[in-house]
């Protein structure tokens, strides 16, 4: 009798949340502490980012003038411009995209849709994943030996674009493969069932459905390439150049290299010019990401499963 009442007591005890149970109270406190900690860390990170951005904008805004976009580099901070670097970056990225997207997407399609799962396939996959983590300077050395010297492209935009394409290929292949894998098998089966060939299945159904994912991966990869300076310094991006590239074989500079060469100058005014350059680079990156979001939303609206 007494044991039964104790049991009953215990049951009601544990059934009341937040009541006098010491372990439950401790767990609730812990839960609240963790939530607070996570919020502090998140907002702390955002706050630091905001402080940095605020500092950059504060430093550089007065050099964002129309002539900053139309002038070439100069030893005088007041008339120094970003034109060669902006055009150089866009030229290089354009070529990089032309080179990297077809190869990257083709590789992803082959690996996902054509190649049978085998030891070789796993070996290739492992290597691609590893390549994605190789430091960019290593690609610079490769680019110097292969494109600048061996193919004799010299210090041209083409050398830079080839090197950058190699740099971002692993990222593009990995994200494209994931996007292709996410397309439901039912879509493929349905297409095969009505007699489509493998290439028809891929080109009519799988690739269009995977486009949002592929585009996101490409934009992320391109954002990385546009911010690289180390490999390009190695393969001959110029510190001082007063013309914009007109052909793929022309000399060039890019935004991060120009910013770097301004930052290493002794004059304080040039550090502010560099800040202005950073603002332009950030705006361009945000614009690229916005384009990715728009393409993604449009493509996703078309495919629902």
């Amino acid at each position: 009798m007494s044991s039964e009442s104790r049991n009953l007591e215990a049951r009601t005890f544990s059934g009341l949340p937040g009541a006098a149970s010491p372990t439950l109270a401790r767990r609730n406190t812990n839960e609240r502490l963790i939530a607070i900690l996570l919020a502090v860390l998140t907002w702390g990170g955002v706050a630091i980012l905001m402080v940095l951005l605020g500092h950059i904008v504060h430093e550089g805004y007065k050099y964002i003038t129309p002539h900053f976009f139309t002038n070439f580099a100069s030893r005088k901070a007041e008339i120094a411009g970003f034109k060669a670097a902006i055009i150089g970056s866009l030229y290089m990225i354009g070529l990089t995209i032309l080179l990297a997207i077809p190869i990257g997407v083709a590789a992803a399609v082959f690996l996902e849709e054509y190649l049978r799962k085998s030891r070789l396939a796993r070996f290739i996959e492992l290597n691609i994943n590893n390549l994605a983590g190789v430091p960019s300077i290593v690609y610079g050395i490769l680019g110097l030996m292969l494109f600048v010297r061996f193919f004799n492209f010299q210090e041209s935009v083409l050398s830079a674009a080839c090197t950058m394409a190699l740099l971002i290929l692993p990222v593009i292949i990995i994200s494209a493969r994931e996007a292709i894998r996410a397309v439901p098998a039912g879509i493929r089966h349905a297409a095969f069932a009505v007699g489509a060939t493998r290439w028809q299945v891929v080109s009519h159904h799988v690739l269009p459905a995977a486009t949002p994912g592929i585009v996101t991966g490409v934009i992320l990869a391109v954002s990385r390439a546009i911010g690289e300076s180390a490999p390009l310094l190695l393969i001959g991006a110029a510190a001082f150049i007063r013309f914009a590239p007109k052909s793929p074989m022309d000399r060039y500079t890019v935004m991060p290299v120009q910013i770097f060469s301004w930052l290493t100058k002794p004059q304080e005014a040039f550090h502010q010019v560099a800040a202005a350059g950073i603002i332009v680079l950030l705006v361009l990156l945000l614009a690229l990401n916005a384009v990715a979001v728009i393409i993604r939303m449009k493509a996703e609206a078309k495919y629902k499963w």
């Binding site: 001959g236 991006a237 510190a239 001082f240 150049i241 007063r242 060469s261």
Partner: peptide, 20 residues
């Protein structure tokens, strides 16, 4: 850099590129 800037101002047909 300073010399190249002035020189190209006077000789627009010549492209001088300086690396570091």
């Amino acid at each position: 850099e300073a010399v190249a800037e002035e020189f190209m101002g006077a000789n627009p047909g010549v492209n001088v590129v300086v690396g570091i």
